[in-house]
Design a protein around this nucleic acid. Structure first.
Length: 352
DNA sequence: CACATTTGACCCAT
DNA sequence: ATGGGTCAAATGTG
């Protein structure tokens, strides 16, 4: 399969899944029927496109694997390294699967969510016509393990409480059991990135800290023991938040936003890893997972979402079952990784 | 000292 | 030509 078409299929499936996720969020927050109708239309369109792509034979099998001069296959990172050189020789840039996740911050704070992945910022750029700069991150294990996962984080135009996180590629690295270090670094990073424009929001966040909050994860397709859809509630200390250092307060208002981006939004995120040593020892807050399914219509949407996940999984299985000598390793890898990475549309929603 | 971020310059697709 | 994405030297931090 051509790299382009495989990523198109995945993109389309991703789009549909994201729409479904958004629809669910909209339903939950009581959006108008028209809004929901439009989203359903988008979802159907995504399904249609995907089906047509597959049935039209767009997914031809081709070898995306790169070979060294001696004929042995090169590791992915070495392939990535040579991309620029390839570009100059006229070859197309490899399009990694890409999907966008919106991280919404309600009037309440978010939480520092770790999915075990650590990210390293490699750039920031002002985007034309956008109020806020876009941050560029890649997996910290890019050099050591050749993990090509990347993401871009940008504050939404219309709603400063919403961040658009665009993931590119998926993790091929081993998930680190401890994300404490990176999480705390991420906190600082966010503080720097967001700077002073957070003042007013921080006020709200600080306020919410003392009244408690609810964190909701959406559309999770975990193959882990975690439920596919879950929400967790947190109780907070009555300790004045101002008296706590951001580094030691995992729920630091300035750290919350970006950690959702930086560390990701995995459902397994709420493990003990996301409490910094200081807070876990001082027992500042407790967590109690309470599995909640949304009412009205939510089940159908979840079914639609899991449908997409199954398609992706099936596509991988199907391709690997094909005994073609021209297997596209890129697609295999991508699809499998999408599955493995739990397709992080599970943007954390922060509800007041 | 090792590793992270910042930021201006550069590359490349459009 | 332009804008988005990436590189890499400088700088910061623990």
């Amino acid at each position: 399969m051509e790299i382009g078409s495989s990523s198109m299929v995945v993109d389309e499936m991703a789009r549909g899944r994201e729409m479904a996720r958004q629809l669910q969020a909209d339903i939950d927050s009581g959006f108008s029927v028209d809004t929901c109708r439009a989203l359903v239309k988008e979802i159907l369109s995504a399904f249609d496109k995907t089906i047509s792509m597959v049935t039209s034979g767009a997914m031809t099998i081709g070898n995306g694997g790169q070979q060294a001069a001696d004929g042995t296959e090169l590791p992915p990172w070495s392939v990535a390294k040579s991309l620029r050189a390839e570009n100059s020789s006229g070859k197309k840039r490899k399009m990694l699967p890409k999907w966008t996740s919106q991280v919404r911050l309600g009037s309440g704070p978010g939480v520092e969510v770790g999915d075990g992945y650590s990210w390293r910022k490699y750039g920031q750029k002002e985007i034309l016509g956008a109020k806020h700069p876009r941050g560029y991150y890649r997996c910290s294990h890019r050099n050591t393990q050749g993990c090509l996962a990347m993401k871009q984080v940008q504050r939404s135009e219309e709603n400063p409480l919403v961040f658009d996180v665009t993931y590119r590629g998926t993790h091929t690295c081993e998930r680190r059991p401890s994300a404490k270090a990176s999480a705390s670094r991420d906190s600082l990073l966010l503080q720097q990135q967001q700077g002073q424009q957070q003042q007013q929001q921080n006020q709200d966040l600080l306020l919410s800290f003392q009244t408690g909050l609810k964190v909701k994860t959406e559309g999770l397709d975990f193959k882990s023991p975690e439920p596919s859809s879950s929400s967790l509630s947190f109780s907070f200390p009555s300790t004045p938040v101002e008296s706590l250092k951001p580094e030691t307060l995992t729920f630091s208002p300035s750290s919350t936003l970006d950690n959702c981006h930086l560390v990701g939004c995995g459902g397994v995120a709420f493990s003990n890893e996301f409490i910094s040593p200081a807070t876990s020892e001082s027992n500042y807050f407790s967590m109690s997972p309470c599995h909640q399914m949304s009412s009205y219509g939510g089940q159908a949407l979840q079914a639609a979402e899991s449908e997409f996940a199954e398609i992706i999984s099936a596509a991988a299985t199907c391709t690997s079952a094909t005994n073609s000598p021209m297997l596209d390793m890129d697609f295999l890898l991508d699809a499998a990784d999408l599955d493995q990475a739990n397709f992080p549309f599970d943007a954390c929603s922060f509800l007041s």
